[in-house]
Every structure is written in structure tokens, then in C-alpha cells.
Design a protein around this nucleic acid. Sequence first.
DNA 1: GTCCATGTTCTTTA
DNA 2: CTAAAGAACATGGA
Length: 276
Amino acid sequence: MPELPEVQTVVNTLSPRVSGSLIVSGTVIRSDILTPEGCDFIAGIVGRRVNRVFRRAKRILFALDDGNHFYIHLGMSGRIRIESSDAPPAKHTHLLIDFRTQTGEELQVRFIDPRRFGGVWWVGQDWEDPNLGPEPLDLSATGLAARLDGTKRFVKCALLDQAVIAGLGNIYVDEALHVAGIHPLTRTHRLTREQIAALSKAIKTVLKRAIKHRGSTLRDYVDADGVTGDFQKIHRVYGREDQACLSCGETIKRIVVGGRSTHFCRVCQPRKPASA
DNA sequence: GTCCATGTTCTTTA
DNA sequence: CTAAAGAACATGGA
């Protein structure tokens, strides 16, 4: 479910309820979702107040009032829900955190993840990860060019690599490449300056629009309040194999690149840049 | 039963 | 060395 826009949407729904709230108790239902394994996560969080909740890449970070941090990564199927502690927990609920807000309201944050590719990481003071690339919304065209320089990878693969640029996933890479008019199998060193400028702009446009639409709900993604996104309704290529391109009418193709489904229009995204 | 899935990481191959 | 390909992780839906 979660790429940058979905994770940002979860943060946007979580933050107003959880920022400033006190953690009164917590329960780890499945301890194998915790990293480092065997850490006393509950002891680290109970009695702490959450200073802020924020997103970095696809991670949801919680900054505690003692300077420590933890983050939740949703993996493929993870969800976070704010619910009352008396509501029966959904199947595959792995973690419960009970909060008291500054207005005295009691609420429970739940981490649910059937496939368990996601999890919870206790990271202490130092929450930034040197292996993560820059945030797409803060990255200039020149910056992106520098990140793509010195490699001959397929642009699709490079953009999925979180060390190159952090937060894009399979949906938004396909969508951004279509908006930029770039074929997914283009080698990064073959991208022209103009193409990189278009790509940089397309990434930002697509992500901002997707956040405005509260992300894409393909199967069961919902935000912390249980609300679905609707950006999937305006996907231009992702999940549209064999349908007409919304720009030119050509049939959308699906190929496999780097083991991932890749959707594109071969007219709007020619292998070679359109010659003048 | 089959194939596929919004992610990441490790191993193998070239 | 780089990078591509494949598998692995675990569950559920079509």
C-alpha cells in the first residue's frame, strides 16, 4: 500500500491526534515485527510524550520527548489505525500503543500487517539513515541529475532504488515516467538534460497530486482514520494494461523490469527522445 | 491449484 | 567492480 503519498497521508491523519499526546501503555502482540529484535520497545515508549510525527522516505517517524525515536514502515500490506481500545482488533494486529491526548482523550494506535514485510524500528536519537537518498519533493533537477549520474541502469530501476531517491515506489515511478514522456528502459546515462528536467518536474507534480488525493487505494490501503485514497482513479498508466492511453489512445503496455510490473505508453514514452 | 500484489534485502549471475 | 535477475520473506485476493 504505501509509497510516499500514502505514508504522508497516514502521517497527516496521525499527527493531529498523536503529536503532544502521552503514551500510557503499549502491547507488542508479535515481537518479530520489532527491530532490533528483543529490544524493550515498550519500556522505551511508555511515559513518554510524542513531540512530533513525521515522514522520511516511506517511514513514519515518532519523535519522543526524551530525544529517542522509533519508526513504522508499512511494507506492502501494513496499515495504521486509530481506534478505541475497546474495539476488537483486526486480524494481523501486531502492536498497540495507548495514548492520552492533551485534551484527555484516550485513543489507541494499532499497527496491522498481514504480510509482515513492514515493522517497527527503535532507532534512538539518530533517526536519519545515511543509506536513504534525498526526499523527492526537495530535490532539484540538478540534484536529480547528480543522483543519476555515473550509472547505466534502467531509469525505472534507478528511481525505485531508495538510495538514489527515497519514497518512490512502483506506482509513482510508472506515473512519473509517463508524465515525463520517458521510456522505463531508458539507461540513465542516456537521459538528456531536458528529460531529467521533465522527470524532476513530473515526480513532484505526480507526488503532490497524489498527496492531495490522499494516496492510491488499490486493495485495502486506508489512512489512520480508515479513509481510502482516490488517486488510483486518475492513474494514467499504473494498472491500466491493455487500456487506452489517456494522452494519445495507444494501448498501455505492461512489461517486467527489475522483477516489477512496469506500465507505459510506447507512443508517449518512446525509447529515443523525440527529435526536433 | 495458479498468478499477482503499493517493499526490501540477500544471493546468484553476467 | 557494477548491475541485472531471481529468490526470499508471508498472506490473501482474483
